[in-house]
């Protein structure tokens, strides 16, 4: 637990467990229901998300994918009338009980949103934003920023203009900056809420490649409507409809051996009437 004001520790070297050491599941969700006021958005959902790799939450709009994602790092708890029941464990720790200081959870579980959102300051200051609460020397900070920008495949494009306003970057670059900003905190899990929905296809492809390379070391959960994208990058697919899981499995299973009609209809891009 990190008390407000004290400096949490941040390892400089990107520490990642090897697959042999990895726990079998990154996220365990049991009997999870989510509400906005009296409206039940997700009801009694149980799910195990494997460690490492990309898990795509696929399904039509309004099925509770983003709501589920936003409860994993408790971003939703500041939303008016939002509540949930059930239990979510991330790497063995209950997100409600074991994180009395929610900021500690959010540093461990990074999140990238649909719309690129850089702060109106320099690229360097954007990268620095999440690192302020760590006791780091200037050189350590610079190393982390450089490493994270390299991981996000942005270093070559911004190395000589770190003091330029972040808003001067293209949308695709801004989204990669958002990813780099999250990576600087060495998250154990990264949540992506339709990260390519508002950027062009070429930039989307760059981000897809980036997500795949990151998934070797980090567990990634991604919400998407894009079936082609899911085919390209997902290791595991969870198909949701009406706040429930219709079917889940590996990518090969979901795209060739799906047993449920709804899933088959949706992934063959005929779109179901869920």
């Amino acid at each position: 637990m990190t008390a407000e004001g004290s400096a949490p520790q941040l390892t400089l070297v990107a520490g990642s467990k090897s697959r042999s050491e990895a726990s079998p599941s990154a996220i365990q969700i049991e009997g999870f229901s989510a509400y906005y006021g009296k409206n039940c958005i997700i009801s009694d959902l149980s799910l195990i998300i494997p460690d490492k790799g990309v898990t795509c939450l696929l399904g039509p709009s309004g099925t509770g994918k983003s709501t589920l994602l936003r409860w994993l790092n408790r971003i939703n708890e500041d939303t008016e009338n939002a509540s949930f029941a059930g239990r979510i464990k991330i790497l063995g720790r209950d997100v409600m009980r074991d994180y009395p200081d929610v900021t500690e959870l959010r540093r461990e579980i990074g999140m990238v949103f649909q719309q690129p959102c850089v702060f109106p300051c320099s690229i360097y200051d954007n990268m620095l934003m999440g690192l302020r609460n760590f006791k780091l020397s200037k050189s350590e900070t610079r190393n982390i920023i450089e490493t994270s920008l390299k991981q996000a495949a942005l270093w070559d494009e911004v190395a000589n203009r770190l003091e330029a306003p972040a808003t001067s970057l293209s949308l695709g670059q801004q989204q990669r900056l958002c990813i780099a900003r999250a990576l600087a905190l060495k998250p154990k899990v990264l949540l992506f809420d339709e990260p390519t929905a508002s950027i062009d296809p070429i930039s989307s492809r760059v981000i897809e490649d980036l997500v795949m390379s990151l998934s070797e070391n980090i567990s990634i959960v991604m919400v998407t409507h894009n079936i082609a994208q899911t085919k390209r990058i997902a290791d595991h697919v969870v198909f949701m409809c009406d706040g429930k899981i219709v079917e889940q499995g590996s990518r090969s299973h979901m795209f060739s051996l799906a047993t449920c009609d709804k899933t088959r209809t949706y992934i063959t891009e005929e779109f179901c009437d869920c």
Partner: peptide
């Protein structure tokens, strides 16, 4: 609101979110 959410996702405290992201704007 997206500025608040992005700042929260980076593990900033409420006073930091206000000081670093809301107040400058």
């Amino acid at each position: 609101a997206r500025f608040r959410e992005n700042a929260k996702a980076l593990g900033l405290y409420r006073h930091e979110i206000f000081k670093l992201t809301i107040l400058p704007q």
